[in-house]
Amino acid sequence: MGYGFVAILRRDLLLAFRNRGEIANPVIFFFIVVTLIPLGLTPEASRLAEIAPGILWVMALLASLLSVEGLFHSDYRDGTLEQLVISPQPLYLMVLAKILAHWLITGLPLTLLAPLLGMMLSLPTAGYLPLVLGLLMGTAVLSLLGAIGAGLTVALRKGGLLLSLIVMPLYMPVLIFGASAVQRSVDGFSVQGPLAVMGALLAFSLLIAPFATAGALRVSMHG
């Protein structure tokens, strides 16, 4: 049953490798926006450190949103999605493979880049571990939830803005728990609570999101 999963994962990673330029976009976006913050706000380290957890999380969220729009777009346009919907394999697993590929090429690089940007925003030392752990799980949740919105809007000509309207409310818990884990750690509190909730969010969206996305894709194919 897993061969459809592996085939799609391998193909999506190969495609990502072919279109390297597009893959770098969210990471570059993340980088550029974080560079703009000190210019617009203040170069003062103490004040930057205060807002760094929130800024880093908001930017990671926007970067993820930016990239999730294209998750099913090319597959829809060239007919691959139709072939997937009518293939004898469970759509749930194939959707999950696409989401995993998306996370590997956007969420994971964002997570790895975050400590560097945290340093540029003078994030206190205690914040790095919860930042990376939170983003590691959180970006996966963002990819999973974003896939639902991407599936619902893939057949629409101007889906981009609609996608952000649909997905933003769903993203809120991730932002709240992710940013507060970093903040609490900086303030010297335990971060087990928010990180545990983040893990629960991940488990929950792993169960629900691929089903909802598969349903959304079927609707889009019929439309």
Partner: peptide
């Protein structure tokens, strides 16, 4: 945004169900 009435109904039904499942989580986290 959907031109087809059936697709519009089914898409918004899927979204409202996802929203319904998420409302308690969003409320609790807020």
């Amino acid at each position: 945004s959907y031109t087809s009435v059936d697709a519009a109904n089914r898409a918004s039904a899927v979204l409202s169900l996802v929203g319904m499942v998420n409302i308690p989580i969003i409320y609790k986290s807020v």
